[in-house]
Design a protein around this nucleic acid. Structure first.
Lengths: 148, 148
DNA sequence: AGAAAATCTATGCAATTGCATGTAATAACC
DNA sequence: GGTTATTACATGCAATTGCATAGATTTTCT
């Protein structure tokens, strides 16, 4: 069972993962916490929240998102207008823009995050036990780590 | 290890799965097979392709997608204009519209699908062996099956 | 049967998205 | 050191998206 996978095995596993993700997202997206900020916008705040330095270039941030660079550029603009993020030129590279959470942004991210996490638990807990979740985490991390 | 999971465990597993999905999608989306049809449109053809009856109501189809109902309605319109799908009234429910693949649609779906599957394999094979992919499939299917 | 509620799709419209491209700054090359 | 290539972000513009809602049919309830 430790053989190198066939194309079919890879495709079927991916399909299962993808469908699982769609099913979860469809349910999560509609919940109350995403009324004031949709999931894409929340995802930006979330990613900024876990930046070690507290701020990130737009391009680096974009690596973690599925939206295009121009889209992120404008989303950052809107989030700034809402007072949730700050933009300032990168002192070490005049082309770049550093984005970081404002206090209000951090607070909103945490508030939404708490609800979000609670709902994730509600969806996953009936399906998998603690050990299975750990397995799932390990497998998906392995994939992420191996991506080119 | 078979305990009921904590909120944290659920959230961390979900985050790992989500990031894995984003990483995979970002790479897959840019490949040549999605030049003539983007992933969202391909996904519609794919879902129609595996409909047992060969056709599906818009609403049922929409269950498997992340786009909104009006968006799907218009996407179906565009796919019909391209000659890839057919729309006809549901004889058993005058409100509903049945969508199905045309021959051209089925052929395009298969052509894109072959490339797509090959690329999925390229991304997953270096990360997981055959048994691990089977585990991943089982875990994600369990989640899908348990969703409300 | 008839009224009220629910379901399925389509459409008006504003907002968001992506593509192609522009501008400015940095890196690479000779 | 100066030219070329690359990188980072912004912007014009057309296409797509979602929200709110309308229109039409079916289901439910009494």
């Amino acid at each position: 069972m430790a053989d190198s996978p066939t194309v079919r095995e890879a495709a079927e596993a991916w399909e299962a993962l993808f469908r699982c993700q769609v099913g979860m997202m469809r349910r999560l997206q509609k919940l109350a916490e995403f009324k004031e900020l949709n999931m894409r916008e929340y995802d930006v705040l979330f990613n900024l929240g876990r930046c070690p330095s507290g701020s990130s270039r737009l391009t680096d941030l974009n690596e973690h998102l599925l939206i295009s660079q121009p889209s992120l550029s404008r989303m950052a603009e809107r989030l700034e207008a809402k007072g949730l993020v700050e933009r300032r030129p990168d002192p070490s590279d005049q082309r770049a823009v550093l984005v970081s959470l404002t206090d209000a942004g951090r607070e909103l991210q945490r508030r939404i995050g708490r609800e979000h996490v609670r709902h994730i638990h509600e969806l996953l807990a009936p399906a998998l036990d603690s050990g299975e979740l750990a397995q799932l985490q390990e497998l998906t991390r392995k994939i992420s780590a191996a991506l080119p």
